[in-house]
Amino acid sequence: MVSTLTAPSRPLAAAIAEFGEPRGYVATASIGIPPRRSVEALRADLDAWSRADRDPQGYDAIVDRTRRSYARLVGLDAGRVAIGSQTSVQASLVASAVPDGAEVLVAERDFSSLLVPFAQRPGAKLRAVPVEALAESVTDETFLVVFSLVQSATGYVADAAAIREAAARHGALTFCDTTQATGVLTVAAGDFDITVCHAYKWLCSPRGVSFLTVGENADAVLRPAQGGWYAGDEVWQSCYGTEITLAPDARRFDVSPAWQAWVGAEASIGMFAELDIAEIWQRAAGLGELLCHELGLPQQHQAIVSWPDPDGSQLERMSAAGIRISGRAGRARASFHLWNTEDDVAAIVRAVH
């Protein structure tokens, strides 16, 4: 097998070293693994908690720093970023803002957490088309276009530029889920009116950390329907009653954080915010191309590579060989991240053949 990887830059090499030697782990699209710094931060926090040396207010600075790191990662001001714990909850906030009778254009077979909130929105007119046909399917009747930048089941990278152009031409808003992209593919959240991202996959954070970004065009549309005390302008003066002042920026959509999850996320997302994400994509997509070549699949130039495995037999053989991989929608799915090498590709090929 011919090597396809160039030597990583010094910052990327240091980041790769944080993960040890997780050979055979190609399941980031299901769950990422934490860097050493995140594990150490979580252990220290648990130790402090066990000593009764923790208080809720002490986590605010952690959340603030993590929000700022994420904002830097996706190219926004931190005031455009709201925090949450689940993409489905934040997608439900967006769905609640759809006017009665308005059309919501979605990518068919996209991830359920993104689609179901709109399917359950009374009065919304849901229209599903293949993700490849989204741009050409936007009309003057479309209020909102909903899609994942990278499709979970297949790794397909949507033509975001064409979708944005079509939406702008027809006066529609865009809502993009970047969960399967941020951390491996360069994401500019400002290119979309609204984005959502859960950090437990490519950002290698604990589950329970998600982000909603809100552009200027969405400001007048979204309502803080899930607002609570953490959405207050002065958080610790917003704990009781209804007469509170919500934050003037995207923090008005905040959900109170799952504290320990944010301890791990601060370390991991801070690390990714300092890396060249394009370099990570070149590495991960290069391994994807190598796997396609070795298995005789059409070239995809994706970090996620999937192929038909309707009875799960290939997945079973790979699992028996010690490969941590996932299967989705009747397909085997390998997902490569910064720690993977050609050895992982070779292991898959041996197991499949």
Rank of each mutant, 00 (worst) to 15 (best):
A128I: 03
D64L: 09
F272C: 08
L290D: 13
I31K: 14
G183I: 12
V131E: 12
R65S: 04
R65F: 08
D309A: 03
D219H: 14
L295C: 03
W262S: 00
A44I: 05
Y230G: 05
V39D: 10
A135P: 14
D45L: 07
T28I: 07
E21Y: 08
A303T: 01
A119S: 11
Q299H: 06
G270F: 15
I16A: 07
S148K: 00
T87F: 07
A166R: 00
I348T: 04
F175L: 06
H353M: 00
G232C: 08
A258Q: 14
W262M: 01
V263M: 06
L126S: 08
A220V: 07
A13R: 04
L222A: 01
P308A: 03
L291Y: 00
L291Q: 02
S319Q: 15
A168P: 02
Q57H: 03
L212R: 02
S148E: 11
V146G: 00
L297E: 11
M271N: 01
R324K: 06
Q226C: 12
R169H: 13
E18K: 00
A161S: 09
P130I: 09
W259M: 07
S256E: 10
G288K: 03
L295D: 11
V138E: 01
P224A: 10
A14D: 14
W202R: 08
Q90W: 05
I348S: 07
Y240C: 12
E18C: 04
Y59M: 02
E316V: 04
A7E: 15
F336H: 03
V221H: 02
W339P: 09
G32W: 10
Q86L: 15
G330Q: 04
T213R: 09
Q86K: 11
